[in-house]
Nucleic acid binder design. Structure first.
Lengths: 290, 290
DNA sequence: CGTGTTGTGAGAAAAACTTTACAGAATTTG
DNA sequence: CAAATTCTGTAAAGTTTTTCTCACAACACG
């Protein structure tokens, strides 16, 4: 038996550019949970990929198989061969990379960070924070430092679409004191401060706190000094095999917050609903996950 | 949907005592290379196990299935779940949160995205891209769009510390054409373009390509039109239970790239070594993972 | 010898695959 | 902006494969 030099997965990737829209959609679906979906009946695969039956038949031939059964047979062979191999499942995230490859080591670390970070989150506090952010009573200020202002801006860009009165402050900018002039009680600050913690951020937090604003802090596992002032803090694990830190876990929290807040605000802000609706139409993104 | 408490493999083992000789022979064959052999046609399985067709049919019913197709369907389901891996099986990441809590749903989705994204990366291409980015021959341009410029800036901030001649362009800015004036052959562009893909980014990529620059693209699973011009593309999964997309998987790739490039450049740029060293001292971050 | 098991062969029924034709949609081209 | 081209889904029909079942003979074993 001649060991096939390339798996079907490879073959699909190679041909990816020659495929049409629907075929690519199908290819994605096959790769989605590979190889399980390719082992069912053709019609089921078509349904799952949301393409028509002939599209599947056409593509299978395009990939060089005489028919769907032949395609399946090779998938099974592949599966057999794979099972023979190392049982170590997630030894490698990126197929074909040595397990010591940076991609694998890095991914291991990030997943671990995420697990660890989530394990230490109090869901009730998270919900509370989201409610504070969603509440349209006061202004929402979003603050980031030298590196973390990218996170801050990411949050800002989304909040801006969800609710009014959102301000993005970069604590390293020398303009930040001006922003604080009209902070009043009931305003909410979301502050990102990861090591190395920035003095400006701390000062800014102090003033905001003093003026009666609520503070929500995203920091790392060693916690920025701001946490003593903050009403709610979330610490993320950030260690990766790199000379720098990872903000992946914090990004996850931020994205989860965006999603939660948007659910909370749903329907409230009529004027934004329009804009959102248009976006949903354009991106075909509005899927109910309940 | 009730999660089956037992796999088919378990089920066979349980019933093993109630089985007759030929049936046991069949069972052994199924478990031999599980689950591949069970996914082919019934007749093939019979031949492989050296039993008759009716024996297979009879045993499948004995196991409690209505017919062979039903048996196969469950095998496929099992395979699907197994591929998801032990990591994603966690049904509560944040302890104490109901498994339907946004934090858990979101984390599931992100982990799944990461797994899927990494599974489709060619490590050789990734290394190649990192070498291109590390090569100090030409300039390094980093380009992002409306949302993705946060990723671009994150990469920029780190590259700036690693190598000289790094430029950050925001394709939504109307100043970008000026940046392209002195692009020359050998320059490298790192472009972020996720849906909804931006026309400006495409135009910018076209000009850069035409001027002989190399393009590295970070996009989503549906791939920005820029990918046709790009020398190397990486597509990430971005779907999460939210009205918006997630850039978490792409951030992971970006961070992994930063780490890899920094390893490649290590020692080359003497003038930056100082600055780095000081940083490492301050952050106690310098850990050798090699 | 009797009981329970297994294989053979065949045929009916069901399911699956392949192909074709065509119309509507999407995209490209001029 | 219209025409041309390409792509895609629907429907249907024909073909092949697969599954299921039955009857019966052969076999194993106490």
């Amino acid at each position: 038996m001649s060991e096939p030099t390339s798996t079907i997965s490879d073959r699909i990737h190679e041909k990816l550019d020659d495929l049409t829209r629907a075929e690519r959609q199908l290819a994605d679906s096959i790769l989605e949970n590979y190889p399980a979906s390719g082992l069912g009946p053709l019609a089921a695969l078509a349904t799952e990929a949301e393409v028509s039956v002939p599209t599947v038949a056409r593509m299978v031939q395009k990939l060089g198989f005489k028919g769907y059964p032949e395609f399946q047979a090779e998938l099974r062979e592949e599966l057999k061969a794979a099972a023979r191999g190392p049982v170590a499942k997630h030894d490698a995230w990126a197929e074909g990379a040595p397990s010591g490859h940076m991609l694998n080591r890095f991914t291991d670390a990030v997943i671990d960070n995420i697990r660890n970070t989530l394990g230490q989150i109090d869901p009730a506090l998270f919900d509370e924070a989201c409610e504070m952010v969603a509440a349209p009573k006061g202004r929402l200020y979003i603050v980031g430092g030298r590196i973390t202002h990218t996170l801050a801006e990411y949050l800002f860009l989304h909040m801006q679409m969800i609710r009014p009165e959102v301000v993005h402050i970069q604590s390293t900018s020398n303009a930040w004191p001006h922003y604080l002039l009209d902070v009043k009680e009931g305003d909410v600050f979301v502050i990102f401060d990861m090591r190395r913690y920035e003095n400006n951020t701390l000062k800014l937090a102090e003033i905001a706190h003093q003026k009666g604003a609520k503070l929500i802090l995203f920091t790392d596992q060693w916690r920025s000094p701001v946490h003593r002032l903050a009403n709610i803090s979330f610490s993320s694990r950030i260690v990766v095999p790199s000379a720098w830190d990872s903000i992946s876990a914090t990004l996850l929290l931020t994205e989860a917050m965006v999603s939660t807040v948007q659910n909370l605000c749903w329907g409230d802000t009529k004027d934004r609903a329009e804009e959102l609706e248009e976006m949903f139409d354009n991106t075909r993104l509005f899927r109910k996950f309940t």
